[in-house]
């Protein structure tokens, strides 16, 4: 057990009933306070990995510890540490913004009155406070993305996992979300980010891992990776590494 690590993954494998091998023995450690990018092409295994960490998918084998709590033996403790922003909208669109937030807080044992107090600064920060009594279906795509972030933060998680949070979001909003995430990280929240916008990972993340066909291709500090490849753009390095890993 290592409490200095936010996340420890060892030999993680996932084979779906269809026979598809989504993860082929992934091992990964993420330090507390890190801003970590998990990159990979579509179908590489990013979402499967995140789903296993958050107990949404059963793993085939391997171990996962979140701040020292195993998802096998202490799943409830492990879950209290995690805030998840999934790729797809998964809230009830017929509910009000504030109800979505307070209900989520309730699942973590936070009373509605406490959650209402906690929700105010989060919703204000994310520009949703004025919309708190609107039904989620009336929000724009960008607002819905921010609502998912607000929902993930209501129980003050130590580890925030964002699965393509800026997909389909305009440039201005994306930049404001970057600032928000930077601030979150500066206050001590460990962040794992998956994204297809590689400049996003380059700008925000101190460490980066690239996953392809269910295996980790590279895992090192972003600066070192860029330097090792002659200060090329992350996008070029990403494509080179993917090509190399696909041929081997």
């Amino acid at each position: 057990m290592n409490t200095h690590l936010a996340l420890t993954i060892t030999g993680l494998r996932k084979t779906y009933d269809t026979g598809t091998s989504a993860l082929k023995g992934v091992s990964l450690s993420i330090a507390e306070g890190d801003f970590f990018a998990l990159l990979g092409p579509n179908g590489a295994g990013k979402t499967t990995l995140i789903s296993i960490l958050t107990c949404l998918t059963n793993k085939t084998s391997g171990t996962v510890e979140v701040f020292g709590a195993s998802i096998d033996t202490e799943p409830e403790r492990a879950k209290t540490y995690i805030g998840l922003v999934p790729q797809e909208f998964n809230f009830n669109i017929f509910e009000k913004v504030i109800d979505i937030i307070t209900t989520q807080a309730g699942y973590y044992g936070i009373t509605r009155s406490s959650a209402l107090q906690d929700a105010e600064p989060i919703l204000k920060e994310l520009g949703l406070w004025e919309k708190r009594n609107d039904k989620a279906m009336s929000l724009s795509g960008g607002m819905k993305r921010r609502l998912m972030i607000a929902r993930a933060l209501i129980h003050h998680p130590r580890l925030l996992i964002l699965d393509e949070p800026t997909a389909g979001v305009d440039v201005e909003l994306r930049r404001s979300m970057w600032e928000f995430l930077k601030k979150m990280n500066e206050t001590g929240t460990t962040i794992i980010l998956t994204t297809h916008y590689l400049e996003e990972a380059e700008q925000l993340c101190r460490n980066v891992a690239i996953i392809n066909q269910g295996a980790i291709v590279v895992n090192e500090p972003t600066a070192a990776l860029l330097h090792r490849h002659g200060d090329k753009k992350l996008e070029d390095i990403f494509l080179t590494l993917l090509q190399r890993s696909s041929t081997t």
């Binding site: 409830e76 403790r77 879950k79 998840l84 998964n90 973590y108």
Partner: peptide, 17 residues
């Protein structure tokens, strides 16, 4: 309904036993 719309994930990621 919750399973179909993936709202169930809100509960599944939480520590509710």
């Amino acid at each position: 309904g919750m399973k179909f719309q993936h709202n169930l994930e809100e509960i599944m990621v939480s520590p509710t036993p």
